[in-house]
Amino acid sequence: MKTLVLAEHDGKQLSPALFQAVTAAQFWNSPVDLLVVGSNTSEIAQQAAAISGVARVIQADAVHLAHPLAEDVANLIFEIGREYQVILAAHSSFSRNILPRAAALLDVAMISDALSIHNDNTYVRSGYAGNILNTIHSTDAIQVLTVHSSNFAAASLGGSAEVVSIKVPAAFGKTRWLAEKHNHSDRPALSSAKIVVSGGRSLGSAEKFEQILSPLAAKLGAALGATRAAVDAGYAPNEIQVGQTGVVVAPDLYIAIGVSGAVQHTYGMKDSKIVVAINQDPDAPIFQVADYCLVADLFEAVPTLTAAIH
């Protein structure tokens, strides 16, 4: 039997989390195939072939896959899925859109965001916003899952897998891609950043959010994160929301600034190596998950901190 990994990419580069998903896929000790879907993907397919531990890169290339839609990718996975014992991807908005659809076509259950793999069909995943851990055993013949990529080491380069093209079925045709909006910034990507500076509603405005947090992030080479309250208030864009309904991060250093520490937020950051919290309320729940707790007014403490960093 074989393992299939759905590769995520932006047309130019593979997602860093894919390398971690490839490591997770080695668990079953069977050949690992990567599925690369898109248009003009020869460059991406070559990158994928160079990941060590990959047996084959399956390239599904068609003009209508330039912005791959869940309906089309799920159909592709369905067509080849029966050859596999395991079909997995790094947990992301891309895979969360596609894999449940593919699983239902294959008439199997899906395991979302597996934290660890215990044996061929047993996993640990969290529930209730990370308050509990469930050990789950799947009885299906095909295991479809997404993995919590930060829990797996990244596969290295140095492989030379063969690349094979497959015939792409006609477009599903009931969904049209219109546009995408990405806030381009010079900062590192949130999900893979080594340091994250995160702010809450207490920043008070989009201007303050930028003015107080950006200089610190710039000095640290950090990505910016935000709470849902800050995003809802329009202080920060949706894609930097950290938490149960946003991005899950596990950087070396997470600095939570004016963040209360609701479980829905801490779900997204409590695996960080070191957590620093700055909050004026000594009883703020964020201090329960922080390694270093500074009770202070952020509007004073953060500029002081920024100035003191070399």
Binding site: D10, H67, L69, S92, S93, F94, K174, T175, R176, W177, L178, A179, E180, K181, H182, N183, S191, P237, N238, E239, V247
Partner: peptide, 14 residues
Amino acid sequence: TREVDGGTEDIAIT
């Protein structure tokens, strides 16, 4: 409008 990891995406659905 869909909230995706990098930002947002707009699609039209029949």
